[in-house]
């Protein structure tokens, strides 16, 4: 029997992996932070913004202990996914925890300006992967200029979920956790506004051709289920955006 989807609480999208975002009913631009629990370690992906901090924190604490957060993955440096990092650092330090911020070197020099104090785990200097204590591997897929020069996605080899950062994101007042029939239009709207060109999109997405993806979990918009993954990849590969339109 399917779980009832209650977006007022953390929602488990796969075993041990939770959506912990704030579904702001008045917003057209939603952010999706995720928690990945792996035994003694918790990975927090794209923690979110300062205005969303109270709601996101409440959901995080439903599914993990702050002391367990050992890694924050910041797929790039934008405030909608990073500005709350110092607040989480403070809370984690307050309970005796310690975490690393996993990001690209190019983003790390900017994330510093939020006043972070944790060490950086630079994905580009660590063979594009992070191996957790359990042996579980998170692979980082470099997607330069989508939309930041140091942008990347995270692929969890265990769940086969692709945490795609801004790619596959959407603009939507009609937000739902899982993509509905009109989501392609919401996704096109976002990419036309934020991605630099079709050539650059293809360069990034060609890396997904042979990847077994169970779900795409973007940082904005809605989650794309396995049966729709290839269709959405094709939509983006054929989308003109950025410099294509000049």
């Amino acid at each position: 029997m399917a779980k009832e989807l209650d977006i007022n609480n953390a929602y488990e999208i796969a075993p041990g992996i939770f959506w912990v975002g704030f579904a702001d009913p008045g917003a057209g631009f939603h952010c999706n932070p995720y928690i990945l629990n792996d035994g003694a370690e918790t990975v927090f992906l794209d923690p979110g913004s300062v205005p969303h901090f109270p709601q996101v924190l409440g959901k995080v604490m439903q599914v993990t202990e702050l002391k367990k957060i050992t890694h924050i993955i910041a797929h790039h440096q934008d405030p909608d996914l990073c500005s709350a990092i110092p607040r989480y650092e403070e809370l984690v330090a307050g309970v005796g925890g310690e975490l690393d911020i996993c990001t690209h070197t190019r983003a790390s020099v900017l994330i510093n300006h939020y006043g972070t104090r944790s060490d950086f785990y630079r994905v580009d200097a660590n063979d594009w992967k992070l191996t957790l204590k359990s042996g579980r591997t998170l692979r980082f897929i470099f997607t330069p200029f989508l939309h930041f020069p140091g942008a990347f996605m995270t692929y969890d080899e265990q769940s086969k979920i692709l945490f795609s950062s801004d790619i596959f994101g959407g603009l939507s007042f009609d937000w739902s956790l899982y993509a509905n029939e009109y989501y392609p239009e919401a996704m096109k709207a976002f990419h036309e506004n934020y991605m630099p060109s079709n050539r650059i999109i293809r360069n990034g997405l060609n890396q997904l051709d042979n990847l077994d993806i169970s779900m795409i979990a973007p940082q904005h918009g809605s989650i794309i289920k396995k049966e729709e993954v290839r269709r959405y990849i094709d939509i983006l590969k054929n989308l003109e955006c950025g410099e294509d339109l000049f």
């Binding site: 603009l171 939507s172 007042f173 009609d174 009109y182 392609p184 096109k188």
Partner: peptide, 12 residues
Amino acid sequence: IMRELGILGKER
């Protein structure tokens, strides 16, 4: 209209 069906949803 098509684009806004995606952004705003059908009812809006």
